[in-house]
């Protein structure tokens, strides 16, 4: 790659060329981020009429708030289950579709959910899961299973996990399918000639060669549950019952927008920002070393 690198004679021009992008990032990322950072050290009334600089009090309050710690746990659990569900199902579907001669129809249908807005997904699942109006509770009642996510935290958690995984399956499917297509046919053909079973081909050839994709998807799915889960949670449970489905992002919203506790909410968003930056750096470092994806 090195031989293709372009070296500008004028040292200013490259910076000028990225200026528009920089302006946008400054306006929509750095400026609000700096404001949040500053605000996280203030105790303010919602209207900004009086504010006191209180150093790390907001951080201390946040980190000793038992509901903050429980939302951290919820976030980790969501990440784990959603990543596990959506990646394994995505991989299975991709493997099945990959072996077909005629893939287009399946491909389109499986990718379709990804095109839906998170809010729409939330409404769809709301109608499926609603204890009074929904289809699922009716089916479950035939097996005398009581479905009430409005009161039972575990059911609410399961409901949000399913709703969020469903959408992410499409995404994982797409990347896995591309990953599978990138594996040279000669490898699998050689294995078949050598008499390997399908299972052996999958576990000894396909799976290791998909590792970079898996790693990439792992980070993407974790980022997804960290940030894109808001719509579904807002539509399905509002973080309840009793905080059972409240993750970090939802708590920022609940404390800041509903509770109007801007300092505490800013402190939380700074913490999330640090986590996201950490996760991204981690990903960059490892994907660069792998040299793929």
């Amino acid at each position: 790659m090195r031989d293709k690198q372009i070296i500008y004679k004028n040292p200013v021009l490259p910076y000028l060329l990225i200026l528009p992008e920089l302006v946008i990032i400054l306006l929509f990322f750095f400026w609000p981020a700096a404001q949040a950072f500053y605000q996280s050290f203030l105790r303010e009334d919602p209207f900004g009429l009086s504010s006191t600089f209180i150093w790390f009090d907001n951080y201390r309050d946040v980190l000793t708030d038992p509901f903050y710690l429980s939302s951290l746990k919820t976030t980790v659990l969501f990440s784990f289950w959603i990543t596990l569900f959506s990646m394994s199902i995505g991989l299975i579907l991709a493997w099945l579709v990959f072996q077909l001669r005629e893939r287009d129809t399946y491909q389109t249908f499986i990718i379709w959910p990804y095109a839906l807005a998170p809010a729409v997904t939330g409404v769809i699942w709301y109608f499926i899961f609603n204890p009074t109006l929904g289809v699922l509770p009716w089916v479950l009642s035939l097996f005398s299973v009581e479905w009430d996510p409005r009161l039972l935290g575990k059911q609410a958690f399961l409901m949000v996990t399913i709703a969020l995984s469903w959408k992410q399956i499409s995404y994982n499917f797409l990347f896995y399918l591309a990953g599978l297509e990138g594996i040279p046919k000669s490898y699998t053909e050689a294995a078949m000639v050598a008499g390997a079973s399908r299972r052996q081909i999958f576990s000894l050839i396909i799976r290791p060669l998909l590792a970079p994709t898996t790693f990439f998807l792992l980070t993407m799915n974790m980022l997804y549950t960290l940030f894109d889960s808001f719509g579904a949670i807002h539509n399905l449970t509002h973080g309840g019952p009793n905080h059972a489905t409240e993750n970090l992002v939802y708590k920022v919203y609940a404390d800041g927008f509903i509770g109007l506790n801007l300092g505490g909410s800013s402190a939380q968003s700074v913490i999330i920002m640090v986590m996201a930056v950490g996760l991204t750096l981690f990903q960059f470092r490892f994907t660069n070393r792998g040299g793929r994806a």
């Binding site: 009161l151 309840g240 009793n242 509903i258 509770g259 506790n261």
Partner: peptide
């Protein structure tokens, strides 16, 4: 003040009571 959040807290605890937790 903060009654919006406080009402949510009461709702939380009511749910915990009604579910038997």
């Amino acid at each position: 003040g903060n009654y919006n959040q406080i009402r949510d807290i009461i709702n939380d605890e009511q749910e915990a009571i009604f579910s038997g937790a």
